[in-house]
């Protein structure tokens, strides 16, 4: 016990001088440190809670809001793009249907034109054929008649050549008879 008191006394005496011991246990500086530390902490607390933390909090909230807004806007744009795509698809389908309609109509028209043209051509052709046939018939009739005349003339000549005279009527009738024959 005596040692302890001696030590303590020694400590107190040469706390500053010798004792390469612990400055942390030099209680004469505690009041100073505690006082200044309280000042420091209060200052830091006031600065942080009044200025820094609300500012950082508002910046973070602002950023979170901006990000949320941007995401919403992007979602909106995506929706719009989808709508536009749907509209485009619809327009495309409409155009396709219309084109098909036009094609069908044009085809029908062409078909009708074609049929008309064909009919006209047919009629023309048949008219020409009829004309031709008529001409042929005329030519045939003309040829028949000519043959009869030639035959009658030939018969009269032949009769004359034989030295006979015959009545032209008789020859005519005889030739006509024969030709009918």
């Amino acid at each position: 016990m005596a040692t302890t008191t001696h030590e303590a006394a020694g400590h107190a005496a040469d706390a500053a001088a010798a004792a390469p011991g612990m400055p942390q246990l030099d209680f004469s500086t505690w009041g100073n440190q505690i006082f200044w530390l309280i000042v420091t902490l209060v200052v830091i607390y006031l600065i942080l809670s009044r200025v820094a933390l609300p500012r950082v909090g508002s910046v973070l909230a602002d950023r979170a809001g901006a990000i949320a807004n941007d995401i919403a806007a992007a979602e909106d744009l995506k929706q719009k793009a989808k709508e536009a795509e749907a509209a485009y698809d619809k327009a495309l389908a409409d155009a396709r249907v219309e084109a098909a309609n036009i094609v069908a109509a044009t085809k029908a028209e062409i078909q009708a034109d074609l049929a008309e043209a064909t009919a006209r051509a047919d009629a023309e052709i048949s008219a020409k054929v009829a004309e031709g046939e008529k001409a042929i018939a005329e030519i045939r009739a003309g040829a028949l008649e000519a043959a009869e005349v030639v035959a009658k003339d030939a018969a009269a000549e032949i009769v004359a050549a034989f030295g006979f005279t015959a009545a032209p009527d008789a020859i005519d009738s005889a030739v006509t008879e024969k030709l009918k024959g």
Binding site: P23, Q24, L37, L41
Partner: peptide, 9 residues
Amino acid sequence: SHFAATILL
């Protein structure tokens, strides 16, 4: 590093 400070905290 001082006990005074950390004990206060």
